[in-house]
Design a protein around this nucleic acid. Structure first.
Length: 470
RNA sequence: GGCCCGUUCGUCUAUCGGUUAGGACACCAGGUUUUCAACCUGGGAAGAGGGGUUCGACUCCCCUACGGGCUGCCA
């Protein structure tokens, strides 16, 4: 059996535009992208929009947005399967000419009746068309479909890089329809024709297509085309092990974007979900491209684990360089409908990012930790922070302001001043830190007081302490 | 119903006949500390069940159970 293993790699992602980009679809796209990009190959995108009833341009746009956010870029133009319908019909007629397909005049009613009858009798309904070997001279003037003339005996072997050799007995497969009575192609024909014409060498897709692969391989054989390398990956399940659905929470890629997970962390997590290479856990996208292979893909469905997702994203927050992180933060804020950062806030954020990013896992968390630099005087203290601003504390803050005013604004100098002030008042530094937090950030939970003071600067710090001490 | 796929700590997984079954997340305990985190150290935690094959099975085969997929003029 020929494979395309020796050619330059061409993979594709082929979603049907009937909704948003599902997280499982996102991972399938990621695997295809990683595989191609890691081998200098091409990653193509095709929209399977032959079902005119269910396909919408909005869904296509949503899928493209999701892929773009995930950072998965595709080569060339997006292919519309629907627009290739003439080519599909052409191939169907070539099959007719080659004798590997035939016209079937059975009506849908006849077939439905047959199925109902078989099922009632407790049998497996494999519809065998009476037209398979009919004399063309006996063909009526009536609408017909074109059916593949599938082998009736023997078996079809799918050599799958993930599932191994899968053997399907041909007698369990019926003669699938390749061209409908309205001359539109069915999925089974369209995928094969498109994958062939687009030069796809590796088909990496959900294992819900595993059985289909047998039928599709028959089309390749019927046309004398080279069969691609198959890799059917397991679907993603919800935390309870059931098929991932809406009741598990977020299923759309864009929902994860809205929750503020960084795209690089999302890619890392998704790559590790169902794929592994040794003990590698946290890696950059470049490393993932180098490491990713088909052999490392697991055969069992994986469950989504939000805790691990968060942890992975936390690592990536810390790993990302400040400029790129700021860029992504700004994009997140815009997408989340938050007001954009002012120039001043941007400048402060740049100074704060080096320490903020070390502990944040998501953008909302990052923004929350940055709250001290986003607010303006006078600072409104929340209930708990206000509680630490008692008379004594305010007195201490008041005595502190002149000293801070004349201090050199370095961490060492500030540390010396604050430690000394705490000692003078017979307090541990912890006791002094609370009112400082309240004065500077209006909160009881904040980043390090030194870090905050260094970011907002001397004048602003003194002003906030003065405000709080009055 | 039939066919196909799957099943290692709670979760993601390593192991490709011989290991005290490893790592990560989560969890628990301790440490560090200026709050929350982060960070450091330690700990508990797994081969679905039953048969084979083999000197030896998580690993190979069979059965059962459970989960998933396909069984459309949907993709």
């Amino acid at each position: 059996m020929p494979t395309s293993a020796d050619h330059p790699v061409v993979t594709r992602f082929a979603p049907s535009p009937t909704g948003y980009l599902h997280i499982g679809g996102g991972r399938t796209a990621l695997f295809n992208w990683l595989y191609a990009r890691g081998r200098g190959g091409k990653f193509l995108l095709r929209i399977e929009d032959t079902d005119r009833e269910r396909s919408t341009p909005e869904a296509t746009a949503a899928i493209l947005r999701g892929l773009t956010w995930l950072g998965l870029d595709w080569d060339g133009d997006v292919v519309s399967q629907f627009e290739r319908r003439d080519r599909h019909a052409e191939v169907a007629h070539q099959m007719l000419a080659r004798g590997t397909a035939y016209k079937c005049f059975s009506t849908q009613e006849e077939i439905a009746a047959f199925r109902a009858e078989e099922e009632a009798a407790g049998r497996y309904p494999v519809f065998l068309s009476p037209w398979r070997d009919a004399d063309p001279a006996a063909h009526p003037e009536a609408p017909y479909v074109i059916r593949m003339k599938a082998p009736r005996n023997g078996e079809t072997v799918i050599d799958d890089k993930v599932q191994g050799q899968v053997v399907i007995r041909n007698e369990t497969l019926d003669d699938m329809i390749v061209l409908r009575s309205d001359d539109t192609p069915t999925y089974m024909l369209a995928v094969v024709v498109d994958d062939h014409d687009m030069g796809v060498t590796h088909v990496i897709r959900g294992d819900d297509h595993l059985n289909n692969a047998a039928r599709q391989q028959m089309v390749y054989d019927a046309m004398g085309w080279e069969v691609p390398v198959w890799a059917h990956i397991p679907l993603i399940h919800g935390p309870d092990g059931k098929k991932l659905s809406k009741r598990h929470g977020a299923t759309g890629v864009e929902e994860y974007q809205a929750m503020g997970y960084p795209a690089a962390g999302m890619r890392n997590y998704l790559t590790r979900l169902g794929w592994a290479q040794g003990d590698a856990e946290i890696f950059t996208t470049e490393e993932a491209m180098r490491m990713f292979d088909l052999a490392g893909i697991g055969r069992a469905p994986a469950r989504l684990d939000f805790k691990k997702l968060e942890n992975t994203c936390g690592h990536h927050m810390a790993m990302t360089d400040d400029a790129a992180l700021l860029h992504e933060l700004v994009a997140y804020m815009a997408a989340a409908g938050r007001p954009p950062l002012t120039d001043t806030q941007t400048a402060l954020m740049k100074k704060a990012l080096p320490f903020l990013k070390k502990s944040a896992k998501t953008f909302p968390e990052l923004i929350d930790k940055a709250s001290f630099l986003l607010i303006d005087r006078p600072i409104a203290a929340d209930a708990q922070a206000a509680g630490s601003l008692d008379t004594v504390s305010r007195g201490i803050l008041k005595s502190l302001t002149p000293r801070l005013q004349s201090a050199s604004w370095t961490k060492d100098a500030l540390e010396a001043i604050l430690t000394q002030a705490a000692a003078e008042n017979g307090l541990g530094f912890g006791k002094l830190a609370a009112p400082l937090r309240a004065a500077i950030a209006g909160r009881s939970v904040t980043p390090s007081v030194y870090d905050m003071m260094l970011v907002i600067g001397q004048d602003e710090t003194v002003a906030r302490l003065k405000d709080a001490s009055e």
